[in-house]
Design a protein around this nucleic acid. Sequence first.
RNA 1: GCUCGAGUGGUGGAAUUGGUAGACACGUUGGACUUAAAAUCCAAUGACCAUUGCGGUCGUGCGGGUUCAAGUCCCGCCUCGAGUACCA
Length: 937
Amino acid sequence: MSYDFKKIETKWQNFWKVDQTFKTRSNIKFPKYYVLDMFPYPSGAGLHVGHPLGYIATDILARYKRHKNYNVLHPQGYDSFGLPAEQYAIQTGQHPQKTTEVNIKRYREQLDKMGFSFDWSREIRTSKSNYYKWTQWIFLNLFESYYDIKKDKALPISNLIDCFKKNGTRDLSASSNSKTLEFSGVEWNSFTEVKKEKILLDYRLAYLSETQVNWCAKLGTVLANEEIINGVSERGGYSVEKKKMKQWSMRIGAYSERLINDLDKVDWPDSLKEMQKNWIGKSKGASINFKIKMSSYQIEVFTTRPDTLFGVTFMVLAPENEIVHKITSKSQLEVVKAYIKSSSKRSEKDRLSETKKISGVFTGAYAIHPINGDEIPVWIGDYVLAGYGTGAVMAVPCGDQRDHDFAKHFSIPIKNIFLNIDISSKAYSEKSNFKLKNSEFLNGLDYKKSFEKIISHIEKKGFGNEKINYRMRDAVFSRQRYWGEPIPIYYKNGIPTSIGKKNLPLKLPQVENYLPTSDGSPPLGNAKKWAWSVIDKKVVSNELIDNESVFPLELNTMPGWAGSSWYFYRYMDPHNNEFFVGNEAVNYWREVDLYVGGSEHATGHLLYSRFWQKFLFDLDLLPVDEFAKKLINQGMILGSSAFIFRKSGTNNFYSKNLINNFKTDAIRIDVSILNSYDEVNIDALKKWQPQFNEANFILEEDKFYASREVEKMSKSKYNVINPDEICERYGADTLRMYEMFLGPLEQAKPWSMSGISGVHSFLNKLWRLYHPNNIFSVKEDDPQNESFKTLHKTIKKITEDINNYSFNTCVSAFMICVNELSLQKCNHRIILEPLTILLSPFAPHISEELWSLLGKKSSLVYEKYPTFDSSFLMESIKNYPISFNGKMRFRLDIDLDLTSKEIKNIVLNDSRTSKYIGGKTIKKIIVVPEKIINIVF
RNA sequence: GCUCGAGUGGUGGAAUUGGUAGACACGUUGGACUUAAAAUCCAAUGACCAUUGCGGUCGUGCGGGUUCAAGUCCCGCCUCGAGUACCA
């Protein structure tokens, strides 16, 4: 009887299923532990070995905490709405509903094989109507709320209406997209309903507005900023252009400050916090108004350098800025129009790649310097972005490199305001080591002093004020796509109106043609029988009602991140039909204790989730305002792609080391064709792709080698390693331990097969230790102290490492432990029992099997087994010094002036040290100050 | 450009957070068991010098510094990775 992992793993996986071992208890008298993975998109490719990395880590924690008598919530589900699922469906020409189901089934099979302890009774799918009902419900809450700046929280829109009724916009402190509006309470009451609604729309947290959006024609939809990487779409890499469209947006900007500040409350990686801070992009400066000469218009600019106000020699507006049309002089009208037209045609990608190109035109208008009254020419140029600040800058060529370049290019004067600093070749943009000149009352001051003085001056004179600006834009929330949550809004006289929370869910209709359209009209428009009747207040999806009583529904759907922004709360109470999460459940579970997932979600999912969390907290729907206490970014497991080389223009392939002297083409081949020495199996290669049948292979020493390159793991790169294959060959326990052993969880690391045999042979060794002569046997008597020491040492190490999420060192500790026990020939029951428990989070199947061989029922269910707690073992270990490899460390009172002989005597006679030195010969005693000595045996 | 992170044997990576650098594993070499192979076990394995026994010198990207003691702390560079990018 050898270690038959297949038999063992099937046996226990079936047992866990039948036993419902991992179902979360409802008993709430135990402390809770909520450990969560970022739920996957069920894409068509299935899981590769990179996906389970984080799941293994959380599974270890979940199983470990169960042993520690925690009530553990460890759920899993699928983020099944959104672009990835839909793109896959389109590529394979199937309905997304169908592909999603097929993909989920495949994912589940793969996950089950790895022995995860998920509570599947709580599975959720964002595309199921009993889930997205609540996504829509949260949307309606956002729609029915506004942000009160003074109280610094979201409030029901009815509060705002009351405020308008009483005082109009006087004393108003609410976030909105139009700040110029002013009216009295009397005026408000006289407005028509339609006008009132239009005004309110500008204050809602989910609002509809005409905005500049990123339009991706190839995907047929708009994209949020974080869905664009380097000017092209994250999905598919298609080009993106700016376009004005009427879109739903989320007022995340209102939460900017809280999203930054509350990062201090959570234990998340610093790098991730930094990313979020950069993304929100807070900057402190001033808002300054410049009047336009001979006109009533004025230009508001934001600047972080109001101290350089006297260095302004021109102004630049973004081409999209609406004021351009109002101030452009007649003589410049044609060139300005032409410029605006040409810059709007450029895609985001072009704009990025042409950043060095300086372009712009003069508008013919002049602004008046608010202090010295100078006339300042107003230009437009596309280095000024419409989306940031006010879409206008005061250009200070001596203090900003871009302004400097622009001024040089168009021969605009450059005024130097920095004392003894040469700005003839480039701008001086440092905020330190300068004194101002040519700046009237700011002369001689440094940055800090002049900043304060100018702010107080402009505030006193009333042409500006101190201002904090954020880079983050409100998030565009509409997608012109089929596979997403329908937005539960209908249009009454053109005014977006809630369909009513009690009418949810608004189900996604079946349509014949779900493909996106290039003109941006949503596919939901293809639903022939999808309308909403105001008569019975019900969604009628089966028949069309006559025109009078039917209002058009919103046809856009929600973006992929909608459903994923709150799913962690649904797991707490997944079957609740009355509420998105029940009170009792949410007050018990509160928040996620440990969240594990990739850092690629830093500025998307994780930021939006924090936003929704704070919103729901403001409405008293949740007890905490951060959803995850601790977060770990697991590093990606990279693939190691294989290439072979063909001499250019021939059909001759050369082994890796023979290609020095001629030009070659590198051809990607499937990694399964190589062995672990990068040797290519040519027969397999020919079988894989028949094109190689005709090729000649030039070998070195009878072998043909390929070269490797580390890349992201993906199907198209032929470098995918499937976990099923590893499970088949080595077993799930080996896979789990090996993935942990590969390196620190947070680190990106290439997959390699070379170490897996070491982990596998460790499990083999463990098995053999308790199966001398192939029969299970344990000794019932007491082992030597040596074996206890090994056990205690291991317990200490594993406990510490798990608490530090350092799983790679855990695996090492296990290996050392089993090696030592093997040497000691220690197969005593009293050692094996705790060892089995200790091992079970890492290699659950084999430990279950050993546990059952010991005559126990299941080591994994805390109710059935006394809590595993290392503290009693730690008591005894305190009296043992920890010895690694014959080195021992003590703290003793030793005078540094003593001779080595005297020190040796002290060591030998000390009650603590002598106990452990025993009969061993001391090789060396190393004394360092602070009373520490190291003894080498 | 800016922000953050990382550089340790042939390889992946340890180092009790300032205390014998290289744990553990892979790989390599030698040995045992085998007719043989596989599997398994044992030993060696940072570099250099000395090997008859010791032993010695140098070593954590580079250059300085603090300290009895630095992979770890400080200053200045170099390289790589991640994020972001005309953000006023």
